[in-house]
């Protein structure tokens, strides 16, 4: 049965490759969590490859009390939450307007939004910095949130618009006959129907805001306003972050674990949302 052997061998090679890469993706995080539970001196001796002699949460306590991680964490939650809500409302309104309502310049606005998705401006943060500074929004929460709303806006409008285009018009018609205004049709009929689109928009933007670095770095210089990514970067450059490896790893664990857990619970939706977002853009 040479054919059978050949096939088995083939599968063996495939799985070896897959498992090796998969291990390389998982191992660093297991290693990170393991190391974060030991004192630095122990880590330097065993390089984090052995289980801790005695589990201790000293590093975690430090990251929250001295490392300011709690503030960064809450900031990130606040920014993500507000930005995503704003994006969902604003972009579904706009998507509905572009898909169903008539007004002058509609197509122009839509093409502009499309063009914005296709033209990269690698240095967009430079003019934004100057503009925000000149209107006094630099180093404010609202400035950062608005900037992040803008980052996710064009893609989300596009997603909503294409979704609304595919919906049949009957439901709206009957609502209109019942005397609903346009705003109420949007809120009571269209928005609930658009749940799949909302799911993609929420997931894509939430991860985008949570992981965003450069705009936060440019806009926010006050430590109390910084989100987690910038906070981690600052912490890693402090004297503790540079020398106490296990403390830094505790901070990284605090930042990574919630995302990993949410990801494992919602992996199907997250993978779908992220790829939908990436391929449209």
């Amino acid at each position: 049965m040479p054919e059978q052997i050949k096939k088995t061998l083939y599968l063996l090679v495939i799985h070896t490759l897959l498992i090796t890469v998969a291990l390389s993706c998982i191992f660093p995080f297991v290693w990170m969590i393991n190391s974060s539970l030991k004192p630095n001196s122990e880590f330097i001796q065993d390089h984090g490859f052995e289980l801790p002699d005695k589990v201790n949460f000293q590093n975690y306590i430090y990251t929250f009390t001295k490392g300011n991680l709690g503030t960064y964490f809450l900031n990130s939650i606040l920014y993500t939450f507000l930005t995503v809500i704003a994006i969902v409302i604003i972009s579904s309104l706009a998507g509905y307007g572009i898909s169903r309502l008539q007004f002058r310049g509609k197509n122009f606005i839509f093409y502009m939004i499309l063009a914005a998705m296709m033209i990269p401006i690698p240095a967009a943060f430079v003019p934004l910095y100057v503009l925000l500074k000149s209107v006094g929004l630099l180093n404010t929460r609202i400035g950062y949130i608005l900037a992040m709303v803008n980052v996710g806006l064009s893609l989300s409008i596009y997603l909503y618009k294409t979704f609304f285009d595919q919906l049949p018009k009957d439901l709206e018609e009957s609502a209109r006959i019942d005397g609903c205004g346009k705003l109420r049709i949007w809120w009571h009929v269209m928005f609930p129907l658009a749940k799949p689109a909302t799911g993609v928009v929420v997931i894509f933007n939430a991860l985008n805001v949570w992981n965003e670095l450069i705009l936060a770095l440019v806009i926010l210089s006050n430590k109390g306003l910084m989100p987690l990514q910038v906070g981690l970067l600052k912490f890693s450059q402090s004297s503790v972050g540079l020398t106490q490896y296990t403390t830094l790893m505790a901070a990284l664990t605090v930042a990574a674990l919630p995302i990993i857990i949410i990801y494992l619970i919602m992996q199907k939706h997250i993978i779908k949302g992220m790829t939908a977002g990436a391929t449209v853009g």
């Binding site: 309104l93 307007g97 309502l101 934004l128 064009s154 409008i157």
Partner: peptide
Amino acid sequence: EQLINFSFVFPALAIFSFFYIIPFFYTFWL
């Protein structure tokens, strides 16, 4: 009616103008 319809897009357009379109052209000027 045009104005009402337009107001659905207005919030998006306002943010988009200030954070994308103006910076885009402002880059050239800067």
